[in-house]
């Protein structure tokens, strides 16, 4: 399950991961797109990820409950270039954790190509944000790593 505010690049991350492609054009997701990719997590060991790309919301609280059924892992994405998507990140993460306790959660700051590394770290520190991954769907930076990490978490989890 990929969650986060609208326009943070959830669909782009999945597209980069599943199809290895990217488009600069923003296309709003309505409802949910589901795609699938098999990830090697070890020698002769793979995990089939069924990825639910949820429409972005203004408020995490508003996510339709039905979508959360049967979720094994959550990726929460914010956009490092738009403060409105991470200003309340810690609160958002608490809501997600409340809705899906004991579900592995990976926090991702996307669009890192838009920032200078040093400034980015300052930005994250200033906002008290701990991101597991800083990715760029545009360059592909750390996208595979992030999803593979999630797959491994799920593998250990199940």
């Amino acid at each position: 399950m990929i969650l986060g505010h609208f326009g943070v690049g959830k669909t782009s991350l999945i597209r980069r991961f599943v199809e290895n492609s990217f488009s600069d054009k923003y296309q709003v997701t309505i409802g949910v797109h589901i795609s699938k990719k098999v990830v090697e997590v070890g020698p002769e060991e793979s995990v089939s990820l069924i990825i639910w790309d949820l429409e972005g919301t203004d408020e995490v609280q508003m996510i339709r409950q039905a979508y959360l059924l049967g979720t094994h892992g959550v990726v929460f994405v914010f956009d490092i270039s738009r403060p409105s998507t991470f200003q309340d990140l810690n609160r958002d993460l608490r809501i997600v954790a409340d809705k899906m306790p004991e579900t592995p959660l990976v926090v991702v700051g996307n669009k890192k190509d838009l920032a200078i590394e040093d400034e980015l770290q300052i930005l994250l520190d200033d906002n008290d944000i701990k991101a597991d991954y800083l990715t760029s769907a545009k360059t592909g930076d750390d996208v595979n790593e992030m999803f593979t990490h999630l797959a491994m978490l799920l593998n250990g989890h199940s």
Binding site: G31, V32, I50, E55, A66, Y67, L69, G70
Partner: peptide
């Protein structure tokens, strides 16, 4: 792949669920 979620219906108390905008 969406339909893999059919399995979770078996776990719900209500016995029914609606997914919107699939």
């Amino acid at each position: 792949p969406f339909f893999a979620s059919y399995a979770s219906i078996l776990e719900t108390k209500e016995g029914s669920v609606t997914y919107n905008g699939v």
